[in-house]
Amino acid sequence: MDKLAALQALFAEMDSALVAYSGGIDSTLVAKVAFDVLGDRALAVTADSPSLMPEDLEDAKVQAAEIGITYEIVNTHEMDNPNYTSNPANRCYFCKSELHDTLKPLALERGYPYVVDGVNADDLSDYRPGIQAAKERGARSPLAEVGISKLEVREISRSLDLPWWDKPSQPCLSSRFPYGEAITPEKLQRVARGERYLRQLGLRNLRVRSAGDTARIELPPNDIQAFVAATDLPTLVAAFQDYGFTYVTLDLEGYRSGKLNQELTQQPPLVESR
């Protein structure tokens, strides 16, 4: 049995399911297959908070409508939790705790026996404390359960003619800050504005990392030289300073997903999860 068939079979065993749906490529594939198998017995729910870019929320709405799945938005309040805003190394634990503490009661109230997420097989080998929080609250990860990797998520999405199969990964904005630096709505907003500016230049894979008053732009290594040659750098710097940054730098190593996790060897502050 191929992996798509295995994923379909997994959902066929469920009476109904609520999908924790961010609009990213992983959870969107889960939502697509859940809808194909379960129809109106599948519900996709996006959590809206200051750490989600408005553009990503709009993408989630558009994609859900194209899939046809029933769709709702709920608000989460991780920014009210100092264990989250203090940005310890296990910050994602508190984010996913808030998410699933919101979704699980909703699922039970609506009669959905399962809450499923978009964790894929590759995620299990990375540092992802949020996975622990989801498991503690009974969430399931269909992609990981059938061994679907990130590359296979894209391949399956393409085979299903999903137009966003090559959509860049877009984790929450809080991932742009070094562990231990407090996160505020204002800081999240200036990062969002910086990344929006760069996307308007035609860039897709990028990050604006924020450390204190410094913005560090990360681009794929092969794009760096062309970016410097083609960009009006003084105008860019002025825009970023208007957003609230004092300094604007370019990371010469280039973009690499999860780069800030390399700091974990320096023993950043960790908050007790339980």
Results as ranks from 00 to 15, higher is better:
residue 1 M to H: 12
residue 4 L to A: 08
residue 8 Q to A: 14
residue 10 L to D: 10
residue 12 A to W: 01
residue 14 M to Q: 14
residue 17 A to H: 08
residue 18 L to T: 02
residue 21 Y to V: 08
residue 21 Y to C: 07
residue 26 D to C: 08
residue 32 K to W: 13
residue 35 F to Q: 00
residue 38 L to D: 06
residue 40 D to V: 09
residue 42 A to V: 00
residue 44 A to P: 03
residue 53 M to Y: 02
residue 58 E to I: 13
residue 59 D to I: 03
residue 65 A to F: 11
residue 65 A to Y: 09
residue 68 G to M: 05
residue 70 T to V: 12
residue 72 E to G: 13
residue 75 N to G: 14
residue 82 P to Y: 04
residue 90 N to E: 09
residue 90 N to T: 09
residue 94 F to L: 03
residue 95 C to A: 05
residue 95 C to R: 04
residue 96 K to A: 05
residue 102 T to G: 03
residue 104 K to V: 06
residue 105 P to S: 13
residue 107 A to T: 02
residue 112 Y to V: 08
residue 112 Y to H: 15
residue 114 Y to E: 13
residue 117 D to Q: 05
residue 118 G to R: 02
residue 119 V to S: 14
residue 123 D to F: 00
residue 124 L to F: 08
residue 125 S to T: 10
residue 127 Y to L: 04
residue 136 E to I: 02
residue 139 A to L: 11
residue 140 R to K: 02
residue 140 R to G: 00
residue 142 P to L: 08
residue 142 P to E: 09
residue 144 A to S: 14
residue 145 E to C: 03
residue 149 S to F: 03
residue 152 E to W: 12
residue 154 R to C: 03
residue 159 S to C: 07
residue 160 L to N: 02
residue 167 K to G: 08
residue 170 Q to G: 06
residue 174 S to W: 08
residue 180 G to E: 00
residue 183 I to G: 01
residue 186 E to Y: 02
residue 186 E to A: 15
residue 187 K to T: 11
residue 188 L to G: 08
residue 189 Q to P: 05
residue 194 G to C: 07
residue 195 E to R: 07
residue 196 R to A: 12
residue 197 Y to K: 12
residue 198 L to A: 03
residue 198 L to Y: 06
residue 199 R to C: 03
residue 199 R to V: 04
residue 201 L to H: 07
residue 205 N to R: 15
residue 210 S to C: 15
residue 212 G to T: 09
residue 215 A to V: 13
residue 215 A to S: 15
residue 219 L to V: 08
residue 220 P to G: 01
residue 221 P to R: 12
residue 228 V to P: 03
residue 235 T to P: 03
residue 235 T to F: 06
residue 237 V to E: 10
residue 251 D to W: 05
residue 257 S to N: 09
residue 259 K to C: 14
residue 265 T to Y: 06
residue 268 P to D: 14
residue 271 V to G: 07
residue 273 S to M: 10
